[in-house]
Amino acid sequence: MSRNTVVPMGSGHRVEDELFLPGHLGCQGCGGALAMRMVLQAMGPKTMLVIPACCWSIIQGPFPYTGLKVPILNVPFETAGAAAAGLRAALDAKGRTDIQVLAWAGDGGTYDIGLQSLSGAVERNDNILYVCYDNEAYMNTGVQRSGATPEGSWTTTTPVRTPKDRPKKNMIEILAAHRIPYAATATIAFPDDLAAKVHRAKEIRGARFLLILAPCPTGWRTDSKHMIAASRMAVDCNIFPLYEVFEGDRYHITVEPKGTPVREYFKMQGRFRHLGDKEIEQVQRRVDFEWRRLLHKAMQEPFSM
């Protein structure tokens, strides 16, 4: 566990190799746009994207334009896992095993409406990389709560009088329970760690899952210039630890957090502004618990509560 993971991400990367074309339609400071750029750099041009309904349905640009230099298949909201599995099967049938299939879905399409089709693909161990860029709510429809929305958060469907009262669903645990060959978390403030995980995933056959925390200035009610800082702070305060899980049971924490209080992270974002000391303390207790449980799983310390 170290602060900086050394990986061959930037080596030899040239602007003309960039697979993300200029002129995307994301909001200023969009974490999801940056995440795509980083992932595609690591994936390379022999990649086919499957994108269900999500912010990226917009970001990629409308017909007859395209935002990327790899083929993109847009599919209905809840079908990323199954459509990617079908694309994979077709490529395998045609002997194109050199091409990677990359499903790219938001948290709504992953945690909620697309969970069944993702579960099916992972249970079958279909040879796909599934990336969820997680901005923690239905941002494309204007900030409604999803299963990925953190406890205490405001959204337009969880107004400040009755904010989200349940913790964020633990997607990595759900996938680990499938005994998925590789599942990992990443975020845009740690690009080397993110690229290393994409490279690792590329080397593994079968289902692979990457959960990328992608801050959203619009929905998090934060200035776009603070997005990288928010991404870093989410890791440092243990709200979003960076780790990977092999075969659903070998845990490896890849970035050592600073242990910053949750309060500092919350202070940066309008979506938590309504929370009082009591509520923040409650979230802090849960975060501490989950972090210790993760340390235990990674065999860093005995489990006790």
Partner: peptide, 9 residues
């Protein structure tokens, strides 16, 4: 959905 993915290739 799977047929859609396959036929698209």
């Amino acid at each position: 959905a799977c047929c859609i993915g396959a036929a698209s290739a």
